[in-house]
Design a protein around this nucleic acid. Structure first.
Lengths: 213, 213
DNA sequence: CCTACCGATCGGTAGG
DNA sequence: CCTACCGATCGGTAGG
């Protein structure tokens, strides 16, 4: 009765880490169990199969956005700096634990059909709203007219997840001392997302872009 | 003597396809062999181990850029539309066979240390030159000063590979009829890369951005 | 939560 | 390029 309060959470956390690092097939149930202080068969008492564990790990990732997306999008309809709020909530979640980005990318590659359905069901309704907000911004002349809202959203998602997942490896296309830090790369992402989104204001105008989404 | 001229190429092509789809560990040597008309042990006569085949597949990917990058960068120092040439050569290679992008992404996730070294050795020298070209453009006032050249290059690489690798899956964050086609997403990538790179010209000026990199 | 163990999979070898 | 087969790995079960 006085057991470790949430063995399950510990297993989920460790599974996220190991699945992200070595992939689902590359991880041994016994290793996963050892990392949380038990043997393989004992772990399978908490999650009936390895595949069930995979589903639980993925669900815990997407669940975060089921709560967060409506919250941030609602704030985006009343607050001044919607653009920064949304983009930072998105990037911050993955930046706080890059394994989330790597895990998601692996699932996209490993099980495209499964992920398609999950994205359509859980994220689809919200991205649609987002695209509509962008279209309204185009009608108002605040957002560049030569932009395809859906494509822009898709690209920001892919780039955010992709940069955070692969930065420590891909940044080696530059010598170590010239490679930008992750924060610099993400700042560049925010900059280019902003510039590619908003119609430039005549310089000297008071309003900052952050207020305009 | 009158055998199939290049069994090896056939194996490499099929391996690219299958490694991209199911990952290195997810592919059985026997299946790979069956797809090119032989049994497992016979395939291992052409590539001593499965791991050797993996290395060969990866090398054939990177070899393309060892030839292509110098060529395109050289053209970029004499021709008018360097930006388009370079970006289209890059995107075209992966668009012609999205499995290349998926394979590369998997290798980045599966073997970060190996890929780091390969990128540093084979691609590093050229991206460095590219970053210097961008810095020269900043000195001339053609390229936005608030841009970190290395971060911009990194982002374009990550986004290009990421979008092409994941588009058929991630685009399902939109209902099927609203999801942009891959070509639309790539056009948006080119647009936003261009806009985020160049200092905007006073409207009415004759020169197009394409000439300016 | 454990030990003991089954059953299936799979890379690679032997030998032709 | 084949068949036959070894040896190791690993998810999951039995039974406590």
């Amino acid at each position: 009765m006085s057991e470790r309060p949430d063995v399950k959470s510990a297993i989920l956390e460790e599974a996220t880490r190991q699945f992200a690092a070595r992939g689902f097939e590359g991880v041994r149930v016994a290793d996963l169990a050892a990392a949380v202080g038990m043997r393989g068969p004992s772990l399978l008492h908490h999650f009936k199969t390895k595949e069930a564990l995979r589903a639980a790990v993925l669900a815990s990732l997407l669940d975060h956005w089921k709560d967060e997306l409506p919250r941030v999008l609602a704030a985006a309809q009343s607050s001044a700096d919607r653009f920064d709020g949304l983009l930072r909530a998105f990037l911050g979640f993955f930046e706080a634990n890059p394994d989330r980005a790597r895990l998601l990318l692996r699932e996209v590659l490993d099980r495209p059909m499964v992920i398609r359905e999950l994205l359509a069901a859980e994220i689809g309704p919200w991205t649609r709203i987002l695209a509509d907000i962008l279209r309204a911004g185009q009608a108002d002349g605040r957002i560049r007219p030569d932009l395809v809202p859906e494509a822009w959203v898709l690209q920001v998602i892919t780039t955010g997840v992709g940069v955070i997942a692969t930065h420590p490896t891909i940044s080696w296309v530059f010598p170590a001392c010239e490679a930008p830090a992750l924060e610099v790369s993400l700042a560049e992402l925010v900059r280019s997302a902003r510039v590619s989104l908003f119609v430039p204001r005549p310089s000297g105008s008071g309003a900052s872009h952050a207020e305009l989404l």
